[in-house]
Simulated assay, not measured.
Amino acid sequence: MPARIYKPAKSATQSGLARTKLWLLEFEQESPREIEPLMGWTSSGDTRQQLRLRFDTKEEAIAYAEREGIPYRVEEPTESRRRTMSYADNFKFNRTQPWTH
């Protein structure tokens, strides 16, 4: 079962960069999930899917996967451009667009 090594993106409700600096190693799903007939819950017998390992660097994650004999694939993060704008810029005199309510 291959593992996925990646750096998570920030969530939509997150303004800072917390929890986006570490690299994660996750195992991919080996068998399909099953629907439990009585309650309708989904279940799986694959316990490795619940495991998430965190590493400070990509090299540490790769070294761990190679040391343990785990096949892996690395997904490089895409750097997002942050638009820096202060709240005071909403009220400046020389705005390019008119301010409306």
Rank of each mutant, 00 (worst) to 15 (best):
S15Y: 14
S80H: 15
A65E: 01
R95I: 04
F55I: 01
R19N: 13
R67V: 09
K21F: 09
E66Q: 13
E59R: 08
L17F: 13
S86C: 06
M1G: 07
G40A: 08
Q97M: 14
M39I: 08
S44E: 02
R19I: 07
M85K: 14
S80F: 15
T13H: 12
R81P: 08
A12P: 11
L53F: 08
K58E: 09
V74E: 00
R82E: 15
A61H: 01
P37K: 09
I5P: 00
E28F: 02
I70S: 02
T13V: 08
P71M: 06
L25V: 09
E36G: 03
R48K: 05
M1Y: 06
A12V: 13
Q50Y: 07
L22M: 11
L51F: 05
Y72A: 03
Q14Y: 11
S80E: 15
F27G: 01
A65T: 03
T13I: 09
W23Y: 07
W41D: 13
A65D: 02
T42W: 11
W23D: 00
T13C: 09
L22A: 10
I35Y: 01
Q14R: 14
R81I: 12
G40N: 05
F93Q: 11
L22Q: 07
Q50I: 02
P98S: 11
N90C: 14
E75Y: 10
A88W: 07
E75M: 11
S86F: 08
Y72E: 03
N90I: 15
E75V: 13
T20M: 11
I5W: 00
A61W: 00
R73Q: 13
M1R: 06
A61C: 05
F55E: 00
S43N: 07
S15H: 14
E59H: 07
R83N: 14
N94D: 15
E30R: 08
Q97A: 14
E36R: 08
E59V: 04
R82A: 15
A18Y: 13
T84P: 00
S31P: 01
D89V: 06
T78R: 13
H101G: 15
Y72D: 03
D89Y: 06
T96D: 15
R52N: 08
T47E: 04
M85S: 12
E59S: 08
R4E: 01
D56P: 05
G16A: 09
K58R: 12
I5F: 01
E28P: 02
E76D: 14
K7I: 03
A63P: 05
T13S: 10
S15A: 13
T47S: 06
I35C: 05
L17I: 08
K10H: 13
F27W: 06
K58D: 03
S43W: 12
W99V: 14
L25D: 01
S80G: 15
E79I: 15
T100M: 07
Q49K: 05
K7C: 09
I70P: 00
L24F: 11
A9V: 09
N94T: 10
K10N: 09
P98W: 05
P32G: 02
M85P: 04
R73V: 12
P37Q: 06
A9K: 14
F55K: 00
E28V: 06
L53M: 10
R4Y: 02
T100R: 05
T42C: 04
T47W: 03
A18H: 14
I62T: 01
M1P: 03
P2V: 04
